[in-house]
């Protein structure tokens, strides 16, 4: 059965604390921290973008999979912050890992769901036998408008997953996708920052799609929350995934390994994939994992994974997700952060 044969994450070292942002905008930091359940977020260095983080995450995935990159048959990077409006991110990544030229490539975009889409399609092509190995990546360096609530959470990170049929680390037991047209968050062409529908992003959008997708995925797999060792939900802030989990009947313990947003922020297309990467880092053979992404607009992809014996062999072949999260952090002041993120108008 097909599944994940290698995985890897990458998170930049720079961080900014909620207090530092709140100070500038005269906002009440404690209420933001409590309301959004956020402490700090990652910030890309000025020389980092979706492409560079995808290369690093993919190199980690290849180290764990131990495969020849030339045998990767497709590469799909999901992001809402591809560095080019026109020109693929995937070509750079494929070239950097040595997977060209016999490879299918497409950049994907579906707000925060694009990463799991890349995984979904890669898994599908592998299962269909059209490619030997498929690569799905979720990565973002998203921006919130200065002073907007999104600015406290919009973070940077990437995770990459290689799918194949041999030496599988986590089998894909079930997939399901749920989608409607619900415009809760968007960014028009040529606009620098996204806009959102405020509280409309909650019940009719995030929760409706995430809960429906989770329920549908579990029904198809014939499983209930108690059957899972771990669960990962899209995490636009610290609060939403916890509330979704509890509503579905999961315990706090089940989501803890992949619940990264309180100390990472929202990595958009990277969010649930990085959560899965962190969960695989601690999973044991036989563990089952539910992952449900969410992308505004709106839709969710659901996956059921079953971890194999192989996990113990590959885990330490590349840096753990928590290595990136907790080691060598560099804290920025708002001025430096604003400079790094191009928020200062120079001319």
């Amino acid at each position: 059965m097909a599944g994940i044969i290698g995985y890897g994450a990458y998170v930049p070292r720079q961080r900014i604390k909620v207090e530092e942002i709140a100070k500038v905008w005269g906002a009440d930091a404690p209420s933001y921290k409590k309301g959004l359940m956020l402490e700090e977020k990652s910030v890309p260095a000025p020389d980092q973008d979706v492409i560079t983080m995808s290369v690093e995450a993919t190199r980690n995935a290849i180290k764990r999979a131990g495969i020849d990159p030339k045998e990767i048959g497709c590469i799909y990077i999901g992001s809402e912050s591809h560095p080019y409006a026109v020109k693929p991110s995937g070509t750079v990544v494929a070239e950097a890992i040595g997977a060209t030229p016999d490879i299918h490539c497409a950049d994907m975009e579906f707000a925060c769901k694009a990463g799991s889409e890349g995984m979904y399609v890669s898994f599908g092509l592998v299962t269909a036998g059209l490619v030997k190995y498929g690569l799905g990546i979720g990565a973002d360096t998203s921006q919130g408008a200065p002073g907007d609530a999104l600015e406290y959470s919009a973070a940077a990170g990437a995770a990459a997953f290689l799918f194949g049929k041999d030496n599988v680390v986590a089998e894909v037991r079930e997939t399901y996708a749920y989608m409607t047209d619900t415009p809760d968050f968007w960014r028009r062409e040529y606009e620098h920052y996204p806009k959102h529908g405020g509280r409309f992003t909650g019940e009719p959008a995030y929760f409706q799609h995430t809960l429906s997708c989770a329920t549908g995925t579990m029904e198809r797999a014939g499983m209930t929350p108690e059957d899972f060792t771990f669960a990962i939900f899209h995490q636009p802030n610290g609060k939403f995934p916890l509330r979704a989990a509890l509503k579905l009947g999961f315990t706090r313990e089940q989501i803890v390994p992949g619940w990264l947003s309180p100390r990472l922020g929202n990595t958009y297309s990277g969010a649930s994939p990085i959560g899965l990467s962190a969960t695989l880092d601690v999973a044991k053979p036989g563990d089952t994992i539910l992952m449900v992404s969410y992308g505004s607009g709106s839709g969710s992809d659901g996956f059921v994974f079953e971890v194999t014996d192989k996990i113990d062999e590959v885990r330490n072949l590349a840096p753990l997700t928590t290595d990136y999260l907790d080691k060598n952090k560099i804290y920025l002041d708002y001025g430096t952060y604003a400079k790094y993120r191009g928020k200062i108008r120079k001319g």
């Binding site: 492409i51 560079t52 560095p83 750079v92």
Partner: peptide
């Protein structure tokens, strides 16, 4: 070695990538 953006050809030009090193 880490993969990074090295320079760019202005705001509307090509992005140039390559290697940098980190501790």
């Amino acid at each position: 070695i880490e993969f990074r953006r090295i320079r760019e050809d202005g705001a509307d030009g090509v992005l140039f990538y390559g290697y940098k090193v980190v501790p």
